[in-house]
């Protein structure tokens, strides 16, 4: 029996085979969507670049070259993206910057998603005053524009990449809570939830084992689609000098650093800008593809 047949069998012989088969079917569905594959390629490239940054970067991202000779050089074979006002190679800085971007994305996803899921499913499943209290708190967070709220947090906590991540995470969970609550409401009264209640399951068990897995896929899709916004917010904070501090090669901060030279030395701001654009696009394409694969409601 070939691997493919083993994965696609209608009669899996073990838990592991059933789970792998399910994952393989999803992969087959995702593979049919060309744009999603492009997005996946970009995201995988981002991860690889971040991991192998020391091998890929030709120069040191922090220490610059000779300030008299190497300042603000246009793109060339020696410096593919040119150099900035401190004679640092922009290509190397963009490569090292991918580590910061990836860190922001992963940490925000790891902090905001569980909070959103927990708040949303609890509010939706328990209902009553729990729902009212949790959703009003969510509404308060939603009432502020995201960047403004993040700015306020960073202003209170002090500038720095860690605080920027915290601020973004704290401001991005409310939409996930809303989404998870809406999904929970649609499954709360279904027969399979009634059935597990009738077997004596506790509320916590039903929430984590039965309700959350059903909300998870649409929340994952939403988080992936939000990644672009998160990267932009992080870049925005960096641009305003409230995120990553110099000399860290954060893409937003790099754009800010180059804005004085935007007319004559366009590459200083443009190159990190293109990086932000490509990565945001990658996450958006992947998110769209994941929606088709994971979200049963959007399925044709």
């Amino acid at each position: 029996m070939s691997d493919r047949e083993w994965l696609l069998t209608e009669q899996p012989a073990s838990r592991r085979q059933a789970r792998l088969g399910q994952a393989y079917r999803r992969w087959l569905a995702l593979r049919r969507n060309g744009l999603a594959l492009v997005g996946l390629g970009i995201v995988v490239a981002l991860i690889l670049v971040a991991i192998f940054a020391p091998l890929l970067a030709p120069y040191d991202p922090i220490a610059g070259g000779d300030l008299r000779l190497d300042r603000l050089l246009p793109p060339s074979w020696a410096h593919p993206f040119g150099t900035d006002d401190l004679a640092r190679d922009i290509f190397s800085r963009v490569i090292y910057g991918s580590r910061l971007t990836l860190m922001v994305v992963i940490l925000v996803a790891l902090i905001a998603t569980p909070i959103g899921l927990l708040v949303g499913t609890t509010a939706g499943y328990l209902g009553g005053w729990v729902d009212v209290v949790l959703m009003r708190i969510t509404d308060i967070f939603l009432a502020f524009p995201r960047l403004v709220l993040a700015l306020a947090f960073v202003a209170a906590l002090g500038p720095g990449i860690e605080n920027a991540i915290l601020a973004i995470a704290v401001t991005s969970w409310p939409p996930y809570a809303r989404l998870a609550r809406a999904e929970t409401l649609t499954v709360r009264d279904s027969d399979f939830i009634s059935a597990i209640r009738l077997q004596g399951a506790s509320s916590a068990r039903i929430l984590w084992g039965h309700v959350t897995p059903l909300c998870l896929s649409s929340v994952i899709v939403r988080v992936t689609l939000d990644m672009a916004g998160i990267i932009l917010t992080a870049a925005g904070l960096g641009f305003l000098g409230l995120g990553a501090q110099p000399p860290l090669p954060e893409w937003g901060a790099m754009i800010a650093g180059g804005r004085r030279f935007i007319i004559d030395q366009w590459w200083v701001s443009t190159m990190p800008g293109v990086a932000i654009f490509v990565v945001s696009l990658g996450f958006n394409l992947l998110g769209d593809g994941l929606r088709d694969v994971l979200d049963p409601k959007a399925r044709k």
Partner: peptide, 9 residues
């Protein structure tokens, strides 16, 4: 069709 959890074996 409604009484079994769609994601559980």
């Amino acid at each position: 069709y409604a009484s079994l959890h769609p994601r559980h074996t």
